[in-house]
């Protein structure tokens, strides 16, 4: 009995130390990563849309959208996030939309907790590239990924909804 208690105690202490190390590392490395981003002076969207020089936040009826401007100062894209309800949990999607041609420039899956090997294939460029150049009306033609039907359809539906909504807000706000 005594031996068992010692065993459980030892495992518990090692596990607690592990928790402390991982927690501390998360704080430290997270701070380094945030510092690097701030030092570079770039918007967090810069990696997503490198052709943009600046991103200006604009609020349309409570929805924050970032206007991406090129070197000449012209707004060529709207960048916004949307959350889809996936198979295992929320899927956060970043969308870049050209408000003039109403075509999607590109999308990116920011966070997801879908099944590894199945649903998480929605993050692959093979899937996200299917959205580039599509208008909201064309999205029904995007095939779901077999084995990841629910996850991929959730993404498509959320992109469709958000694109229509942002376009409507954009038209309403800018004459």
């Amino acid at each position: 009995m005594r031996e068992q208690t010692r065993t459980v105690l030892a495992i518990g202490i090692v596990a607690l130390c592990s928790l402390g190390v991982l927690g501390g590392a998360y704080l430290v490395i997270g701070q380094i990563a945030a510092g690097r981003l701030a030092d570079s002076g770039l918007s967090p969207y810069h990696d997503f849309l490198p052709e943009a020089v600046s991103f200006t936040p604009v609020e349309f009826a409570g929805r924050v959208v970032h206007e991406a401007r090129d070197a000449s100062g012209a707004a060529f894209g709207l960048v916004f996030t949307e959350v889809a309800e996936g198979f295992c949990g929320p899927i956060e999607i970043l969308v870049a939309l050209n408000p003039h041609s109403e075509q999607i420039i590109k999308i990116k899956i920011l966070t997801q907790t879908e099944t590894p090997g199945l649903g998480d294939r929605i993050t692959a460029p093979d899937f996200t590239d299917r959205f580039s150049g599509k208008r909201a009306a064309d999205l029904v033609r995007i095939d779901a990924i077999s084995g990841a039907t629910i996850s991929s359809q959730a993404v498509t539906a959320a992109v469709d909804k958000s694109v229509r909504q942002v376009l409507a807000l954009y038209r309403g706000e800018t004459p």
Binding site: R6, A10, I11, V14, S18, L22, Y26, I29, A33
Partner: peptide, 28 residues
């Protein structure tokens, strides 16, 4: 460590180290 706890502790130590590498790569 008591002998019976060694394997479990090995798993925790290795898992923690791989977790650290995972964090480091994910964030940076």
């Amino acid at each position: 460590l008591p002998p019976a706890s060694r394997l479990a502790c090995q798993i925790i130590v290795v898992g923690t180290l791989i977790g650290l590498v995972d964090l480091w790569l994910t964030l940076l």
